[in-house]
Design a protein around this nucleic acid. Structure first.
Lengths: 336, 336
DNA sequence: TTGATTTAGGCAAACGTTTGCCTAACTTGT
DNA sequence: ACAAGTTAGGCAAACGTTTGCCTAAATCAA
């Protein structure tokens, strides 16, 4: 027979304990699977009460007592970027599968917002942080010094060290170089954002190094960059700088360090009547799923963003168990 | 593999109280701005201690005591869709400005996942829910019956009623109709997903109603749909169904109820050598910012997703204060 | 002066969990 | 039969806040 509850309060350990005629401590132990401490009959009685009352452990009480929540905060610079969104989605799924919930914060790539979020999250007993393309900031250094569990994604710890999930950026740049050379293109250029993060810089380096190693004279590798946060605009501006710097002519092959930058460059090409890809083969990095539908002109290095989440959770688990994990580099690929 | 250092505890009310030589209660009142209860000197002393120790209120303790967190859960069907990501970003920003944090859950449009999330969130003392394109489910009905604060976005409450933020979908469809008619196009079609949500169905209805009202014979308005979750694929499949149903000829004007569907249709057109927009003017709905860069052929009804967040927070506030807010319809626009 | 009111702030009980410690009642070993 | 060990489970103290209630002292009214 079921009781009609006077208040809409959810069942607590106390409710269950009363119903089962045992103490709160016993119920707590049983629902937490500490088996050795109770008789079979008691366990059965408690479990019955749990089911009947629909008891669900209260995470707030638990967090207070254990001084830990099952919450992980992700700080990402801008979810407008489909690559970031993909990372967020896959991380959220992996965390949830591991029994965590994810709080998402958009830092807009601003150090002050990153600081504010880091501080705010601390008082939520957040258990770990996933920092996508983190920037250097005071609260970040503090958090690292305190030994918080922090996984860096896509961009390495600006203070050096720390757990990292990403790809071999140099390798990705090198692959792009090989791809272009394999098509007999030797009039090459690369564009990138002026506020260089470690990852974009590494892509550029890898690209140039490989070209040089394969005998392309340095002076035939044009470079240009542009400031700004929107990779779309940066791509447009950098491409303009590149072309203007070359007396109005486009290179035959162009590496853009992200797909969004490639979209920006494409717009300029369209405006200037340059045919892509026949006059200029554009290579991006990210392999946005939209490319197949509306940007078939773009060749792009595939990054397995959908696999990032699982790796991030692995690294967090390592940190929680007290070890410092090795960097995790996922495989990229450029289908030819 | 090195061991991490144990972190020193953050300052609590007790720490501050000891430092300032007052009781915990007094500190609590002061940090909460209950001014009438303390002398000016005490307030000054406490504030000094707060600053010195870098005290930040612990949200977990507060949540436990007040039986409310400052957490809102957003359940969204798929963040891969840029429109969803835009809603998530703007809601997160608006909530944070109002002092809340947002937990993000990706339901993949599945009722069972939506149920699981709703139940899991309850024991986190989540204060409100933002349900983007919610589907009918048991836990949703339960939550509504319990009187939880729930705001529906983009798709109305499947059980009817409830707070809603969205656009005038019929109006958007009608605007698309006007746009096409203004260009003298009368050979028209519309494609939409087979699993019709209220919003896409309304867009189709508004489109057709307006066309009929302006004298287009019903038999000249072709329709097609396709099943599936990915609007990209749905657009492709539906366009194929449409064209096949018309003996291989494309309409002169085509409304796709989302931009992603338009991308899908575009791919088919490209494959079939149909020139967009000269042979077929495609109109989408969403106005994805990428369009200007890589899909200039697409005309799209602009939806102010960036304004959704503020409205969502308004509606949540209404719910929290006990009133039932009116539906909030934001203005859409189609720049001609 | 006295009684009434205000001011300033402390006490302690929640909120829901977890866990070290304690204690009865058994079970063994000898 | 008695000491030693095991089992089953209760007690109560945290964790960090908030808040109703209480109490001194100070102020005020008459």
């Amino acid at each position: 027979m079921t009781k009609r509850l006077a208040s809409p309060r959810a069942a607590s350990l106390a409710t269950v304990a009363r119903e089962a005629g045992v103490s709160v401590a016993t119920v707590s132990r049983i629902v937490n699977g500490k088996t050795g401490r109770a008789s079979v009959q008691t366990i059965a009685r408690v479990n019955a009460a749990v089911v009947e009352l629909g008891y669900q452990p209260n995470h707030v009480g638990r967090a207070l007592r254990r001084r830990e929540s099952r919450v992980v905060a992700m700080l990402a610079p801008n979810l407008d970027n489909p690559a970031m969104a993909a990372i967020a989605v896959s991380t959220e799924a992996a965390l949830r599968a591991a029994g965590y919930v994810m709080i998402l914060c958009d830092t807009h790539d601003r150090a002050d917002l990153q600081d504010e979020y880091l501080r705010a999250m601390r008082s939520q007993f957040v258990q770990g942080y996933v920092l996508v393309s983190a920037v250097k900031s005071a609260a970040l250094s503090d958090a690292l010094a305190r030994g918080e569990a922090i996984v860096f994604v896509s961009r390495r710890n600006p203070d050096g060290g720390g757990a990292y999930v990403g790809i071999d950026n140099r390798g990705a740049g090198a692959d792009a170089a090989d791809h272009l050379l394999a098509r007999g293109i030797e009039d090459l250029a690369v564009i990138y954002p002026a506020q260089g993060s470690s990852s974009t810089a590494e892509r550029v380096d890898g690209f140039i190094e490989r070209l040089v190693a394969r005998g392309v004279p340095t002076e035939r590798i044009a470079q240009a960059s542009a400031p700004g946060l929107s990779h779309l605009q940066v791509g447009y501006d950098a491409a303009r700088a590149l072309v203007d710097g070359a007396g109005g002519t486009w290179p035959r092959g162009l590496l853009c360090v992200s797909d969004l930058m490639a979209y920006g460059a494409y717009r300029l090409a369209t405006e200037q009547g340059v045919a892509i890809p026949s006059e200029c083969l554009v290579v991006g990095i990210d392999a946005n799923p939209l490319n197949a539908w509306i940007a078939p002109w773009l060749t792009s290095v595939h990054i397995p963003y959908r696999d990032f989440g699982a790796k991030v959770v692995e690294q967090l688990s390592s940190l929680w168990s007290g070890t410092v994990p090795d960097d995790c580099l996922l495989p990229h690929s450029l289908d030819s």
